[in-house]
Nucleic acid binder design. Structure first.
Lengths: 144, 144
DNA sequence: ACGATTTTGCAACTATGTTGCATCTAGGGA
DNA sequence: TCCCTAGATGCAACATAGTTGCAAAATCGT
């Protein structure tokens, strides 16, 4: 990854913050970078673990996840287990919640699926569906 | 409420347990009665509070909520806050977990959908999907 | 550079969720 | 009816996700 790419990337994230009149702090950049890297809904405990090496305190991570969500930069979801998960929207424009998520009951892996992966019919369509959640065993766990 | 009506009601609940080869204990009857009375998704902490006067221990309530859910008598849902909620399904019917559910984020209603209501494609099919849950707003809440 | 406001790190607390173990009990079989 | 086994309960303790107070540090506008 060239430094030019990385530079642009950070600029994007910085712009997100500035655009919402949120102060740009190093901790916030670290969090956003990590979420941008992971690209899947990630829980507070997991983020805490991942960013422990960088020295980010879990209270800071927690507060920032919440305030960034409040500001509309992150999206917060429940995927059928006990933790809240946070995600950067896939594109900076698309309405989030539109794509289904698959969570593996065995390993806890979370995957974002394309919208086309799930088709709704009949009764399901009558309701105003905002989220689609699938749970089961992922390919890797089924194989093991 | 005449004792004949009450007797029938308890019989229904008892039948639910017997039908699933679950031992009929007083504690389980108390829990089911309360959930039948409330008719809304109810959290463990709340149930614990409500049944404290009756002398039901929270560990017992917790365990029973879980085992009754596993047995398919109760349905467990998340409604956008930090607690799990348990509910007697509106339809006292079939196997739970085997078909998709629609959960209304507004009123908490859990509706059973026919399997045909949701079709999985592509990536989604690769995994061993055990549960499908749709979330959004139900017809009634959309209308209100 | 300064100052006001916001953010952070640390430590502690809260609340929901979970489990070990001794004792009790439901319910089937004799 | 009695007995026995497997399951359930109550109590106490533990685990983890979530949350907050406060002093110190940092951002950013003037």
């Amino acid at each position: 990854m060239s430094s030019k790419t990385r530079l642009l990337r950070d600029d994007d994230l910085r712009q997100l913050l500035v655009g919402k009149s949120i102060r740009v702090t190093e901790q916030r950049m670290v969090i956003l970078r990590e979420l941008a890297k992971l690209r899947i809904p990630t829980s507070h405990p997991e983020l805490t673990e991942r960013l422990a090496g960088v020295g980010l305190d879990r209270a800071t991570i927690y507060r920032n996840l919440l305030s960034l969500t409040e500001a509309g930069l992150l999206v917060k979801t429940q995927l059928g287990d006990k933790v809240w998960r946070f995600e950067l929207p896939n594109t900076m424009s698309t309405e989030h919640g539109a794509h289904p998520h698959f969570v593996c009951n065995d390993c806890g892996d979370v995957a974002c699926l394309p919208e086309s992966a799930v088709a709704l019919r009949g009764e399901a369509v009558r309701n105003q569906v905002a989220e689609v959640q699938l749970r089961g065993r992922c390919v890797a766990c089924v194989r093991a």
